[in-house]
């Protein structure tokens, strides 16, 4: 029998999340996550070592389920590697940046990911997110740190009605409940 103390648990495990075409929330699988910081030489070397080109401006590269790099600031990125071991990914990056000054911080367990889908997804997110989430101002592929109510989130639009939210794990049950509640009040399209 698996040792319950060694089995990774998400704070969302015991919640029943909404499902459907209109609005759905899903708890994403565990991922290796890093905050990477460095100048242009480090960005270029990390792109090669990680296998995803770290974007030079606001946005994201790569795809969830594989590896992805999200621009957080002018010298700061969030690296995601779903289902991979943080130790292995970190060792590969460090090997490619032996002579380049940089910072690589493992934040795998700091945050969890929620997938928000459905035709009401953007409108439900707008209940707490102050950004203009219409596709003309927040296009597919855009990713940024922002807020949902008082909670810092990283919001990544992967499709017109498909978002991924990275949020600090202790905030995630509250965020899931707030989104569920907002969906209940979403006006008809």
């Amino acid at each position: 029998m698996a040792d319950p103390w060694l089995t990774p648990r998400s704070p969302l495990d015991d919640l029943s999340l909404p499902v459907g075409d209109k609005f759905a929330l899903a708890d994403m699988p565990p991922a290796a996550r890093f905050v990477f910081r460095g100048a242009e030489a480090a960005r270029a070397a990390c792109s090669t070592a990680f296998g995803v080109a770290l974007p030079k401006a606001l946005g994201a590269a790569g795809s969830a389920g594989e590896r992805a790099a999200l621009w957080l600031g002018p010298d700061e990125w969030l690296l995601l590697a779903e289902g991979e071991s943080a130790e292995t990914v970190a060792a590969a990056i460090e090997a490619g940046l032996a002579d380049v000054s940089h910072a690589l911080v493992d934040v795998s367990h700091r945050q969890v990911a929620l997938e928000v889908t459905g035709r009401d997804a953007a409108r439900v997110l707008s209940a707490g997110c102050p950004l203009d989430l219409r596709t003309k101002s927040f296009p597919v592929g855009m990713a940024t740190r922002t807020l949902f109510d008082k909670v810092d989130i990283t919001l990544w639009r992967r499709g017109e009605t498909d978002f991924r939210i990275e949020v600090w794990r202790s905030f995630s049950p509250w965020l899931a409940a707030a989104l569920t509640e907002a969906a209940r009040g979403a006006p008809a399209a």
């Binding site: 606001l58 957080l72 600031g73 002018p74 700061e76 940024t144 740190r145 922002t146 807020l147 810092d152």
Partner: peptide
């Protein structure tokens, strides 16, 4: 002229 920090954004 005033300083701002984009704390819940790029952080700068």
């Amino acid at each position: 002229a005033e300083r701002w920090r984009h704390v819940s954004g790029c952080g700068r």
